[in-house]
Design a protein around this nucleic acid. Structure first.
Length: 694
DNA sequence: GCGATCAGCT
DNA sequence: CACAGCTGATCGC
């Protein structure tokens, strides 16, 4: 549960994820995602009433991602926000004017939404303004190395100089040292579900999910894998997100259920699904329940189970919306801000304890004593020591800095006070000042913004449609920008790779030593408190398991209850995860023909297209049947939707392929074509990936 | 009657 | 395990 008060010390005139008390005076509101604990006060009339009474009603807006806006406005309770909510595209730096109603005082701030991997529409907010650059993470789940792959966290080839991070510390406790990756968890669930529903049409599973956004990628992957839509109570919130919608149904006659009922557990005991189903064609159903819950690895315990049997027909499956302790540490130590603030104080711990963990990963504590850094860490250390020398980086970390790729400005129908700007206006790679990593570089929007307006306007015309060959020299000219982006997108991902590979290829023990960047992170911090708590035990191990042939391998003392362990599993089915639901594409409406396509592809067809997608690797997610972002796919997006920890060594190879000489790269024209389609908001999915070009 | 808060439950 | 969020009890306005 978020305990963030809503305000950041650097920018106290804006409020994030809190809409009550002192936040009522905010000049702008931000919502990171659509979970209730981040929406406190959002539905309260006082918020509107006060604003109205103060005559500010026309000037104060709520900013969020397009998906969050869609989800929020679906609920009648929040529909009154409709006229005052502004969606900002992810990864599109956008300037907002913060105006004080009383004095007329105006402050400019640039906000960039970065995907947070927590639930559909969830984002982090990167704010840049006169008081420095700050990052509010909201709730997030990012695998190791993902921050390093976020283009807009970087400037001049290195991580931006961030003053403060307001961090999701939900699992910032050594007890949650490591949580199996999304791939591992998904893979385990797929195997369990498949092993059951393939027995007969009367074998059904009930996914005992909490009422929250965040399970969508599970549903979509199950649906794709087995050609079975998932029964849910409501799906109208996804009406404009076909990539999710197509995998859901309100028809109870399906083998996978995620419906809910207050007495669901009771129902289940009586062999009844929450929706009331007990039989099909008068033949009784055979039902198992799968309850997603968070399980984790200790740093020494090699085996923890992704699936645990808890009863004759009950299972728990590992699932987490939040980053683990080690993922949090990886994230924070990479960002290496001056300050880090905990947004969450988990029960059983204290602010002090969390702060103790965060502090060594921040800059202040790293600048004092020189210490050994593992090779891949130099980039990080460099951020701390701004005066360190170039050759360090060149030797150990990344290839020489290359121009980062930049978002093409998108045409957004935003409030006049708001307009999007390309990243170029803030971190022009060819600007020599940027390469110093100097703090001040981040805070000079004002003069640049003036230039940008022109770019934006000219970019809206058709002139930017004609890019073909791509000059690699950077220009601020929008035409060039687009070409540059297109050309450079894929191959340059190795810029941020090394660290990730190094870490994820390590075993757990090695991993441990190689990621302890902050020297003051004493091993005992987690090894002591960890102890026995890491082994997941079953509550009921006596029954024979339904699918014992899948599970027990004889290596676990709880063989009859433990079905799958993350380590033993070969998680080779990670590609489908990228359809994950975290960044759904939004459509204005759904064509009837598409709704009819609701018929799911047979499994073999599906696998076929999957393997092809993997080969092609790029043009990320375009035309993929499930979730993609709205019109602006970039390689990291594919990455994000396919996050991993343990499976990284496999996953990352997807991105290394294009950089190898004989790898099959996408055709330039093809990419260009797709990007243009996406930029103009055309529906690329209609043609499907393979046919989009024809 | 409504909102805020908390305990309980899942 | 803890999550996200519901239900219901209590309190204050």
């Amino acid at each position: 549960m978020s305990s963030f008060g809503g305000q950041m010390v650097e920018y106290p005139t804006i409020s994030i994820d809190r809409f009550d008390r002192e936040n009522l005076r905010a000049r702008a509101y931000f919502l990171s995602h659509c979970h209730k604990d981040h929406m406190k006060g959002l539905r309260a009339p006082p918020l509107m009433g006060l604003k109205e009474a103060a005559g500010c009603s026309l000037k104060v807006f709520l900013y969020c991602s397009p998906v969050t806006k869609e989800l929020l406005l679906t609920s009648p309770k929040y529909r009154f926000w409709e006229k005052r909510i502004i969606a900002i595209e992810v990864e599109t730096p956008t300037q907002i004017s913060l105006i004080d109603e009383a004095s007329g005082e105006k402050e400019e701030i640039v906000v960039t939404l970065l995907p947070a991997g927590h639930c559909p529409g969830s984002v982090m907010f990167l704010f840049q303004g006169n008081n420095g650059t700050v990052l509010y993470t909201g709730d997030f789940r990012l695998a190791k190395g993902e921050a390093a792959r976020m283009e807009l966290l970087h400037s001049g080839g290195r991580v931006k100089d961030i003053q403060s991070v307001y961090l999701d510390t939900t699992f910032c406790d050594p007890r949650f040292y490591q949580i199996p990756s999304r791939e591992e968890c998904l893979s385990g669930i797929l195997e369990l579900v498949g092993g059951w529903i393939n027995r007969s049409p009367y074998h059904v599973v009930w996914l005992n999910c909490k009422a929250a956004y965040g399970y969508e990628y599970l549903f979509t992957n199950l649906s794709e894998q087995f050609g079975v839509q998932v029964h849910v109570d409501k799906l109208d919130m996804f009406r404009n997100m076909p990539d999710i919608l197509h995998h859901l149904t309100t028809d109870r006659g399906t083998q996978i259920h995620a419906c809910r009922h207050p007495k669901a557990e009771e129902y289940f005991q009586g062999n009844k699904l929450p929706c009331g189903m007990t039989s099909r064609n008068r033949i009784p159903l055979h039902t198992i329940s799968i309850k997603p819950s968070t399980m984790w690895f200790g740093e020494r315990t090699r085996k923890t189970n992704v699936i645990v049997r808890t009863g004759e027909s009950s299972y728990r499956a590992c699932f987490s919306f939040h980053s683990s302790y080690s993922e949090i540490k990886d994230f924070l130590s990479y960002i290496c801000p001056v300050n880090a603030y905990a947004n969450v104080i988990p029960v059983g711990t204290t602010v002090d304890k969390v702060t103790e963990i965060l502090k060594p990963l921040c800059r202040s504590s790293q600048s004092t004593e020189p210490k050994y850094k593992p090779l891949g860490k130099l980039k990080r250390a460099r951020t701390a020591h701004l005066d360190s020398e170039e050759e360090d980086d060149d030797l150990f970390d990344d290839p020489p800095p290359v121009p980062l790729r930049h978002k093409v400005p998108s045409q957004q129908a935003l409030h006049p006070e708001v307009f999007s700007m390309t990243a170029i206006s803030q971190n022009q790679p060819e600007n020599p000042r940027q390469s110093t990593g100097c703090y001040k570089e981040e805070n000079m929007q004002t003069p640049i913004l003036a230039n940008f307006v022109d770019c934006q306007e000219s970019n809206s015309e058709s002139e930017d449609e004609l890019g073909i060959s791509a000059p690699l020299q950077g220009h601020t000219d929008p035409v060039t920008l687009r070409q540059q982006k297109t050309d450079v997108d894929v191959p340059q991902w190795e810029v941020f790779f090394k660290r990730n590979d190094e870490i994820t290829d390590d075993g757990l023990e090695n991993f441990h030593s190689s990621t302890e960047a902050g020297a003051s992170q004493s091993p005992k911090l987690f090894s002591d408190s960890d102890g026995e708590s890491t082994h997941i035990s079953s509550q009921n191990s006596s029954q024979s398991t339904h699918i014992s042939e899948q599970g027990s391998q004889g290596w676990d003392s709880q063989a009859d209850t433990v079905l799958l362990t993350s380590q033993e599993r070969n998680c080779n089915d990670t590609t489908s995860l990228n359809k994950g639901g975290f960044r759904p594409r939004i459509k204005g409406n759904i064509a009837a023909s598409q709704l009819e396509q609701n018929v799911l592809c047979p499994k073999d067809t599906y696998s076929d297209s999957k393997s092809r997608a993997q080969d092609v690797n790029i043009v990320p997610g375009i035309g993929e049947p499930t979730t993609l972002s709205s019109g602006k796919n970039t390689p990291e997006e594919k990455w994000l939707q396919n996050p991993s920890t343990k499976a990284d060594s496999q996953s990352s190879s997807d991105f290394e392929i294009p950089s190898t000489p004989d790898a099959e790269l996408p055709k330039q024209e093809h990419l260009q074509f797709l990007y243009e389609k996406l930029a103009t908001g055309e529906n690329v999915i209609a043609g499907r990936k393979k046919k989009a070009h024809s």
